[in-house]
Amino acid sequence: MPEDNKYTQYYEVKKGDSLSKIAEQYYGDKMLYPRIFEANKDILKDPNKIQPGQKLRIP
């Protein structure tokens, strides 16, 4: 996982969000959610469990 820097892009999870929904928002494709999961493995253990307020990296 690359180190965070000022160019790292983040998204703050809101109520009702899922990784696939976020993947669709940023990439246009729900099926690319594993990219977001892989980039946040230090804070996510399960791609189906994200919490409002979490700041996720969006690679």
Partner: peptide, 21 residues
């Protein structure tokens, strides 16, 4: 850092079946 961030985003968008809004 800038190049890395751009590369990962371009890679994701290039792999996408359709582009985001």
């Amino acid at each position: 850092g800038m190049v890395g961030a751009l590369e990962s985003r371009v890679s994701a968008l290039s792999a996408s079946k359709k582009l985001p809004r």
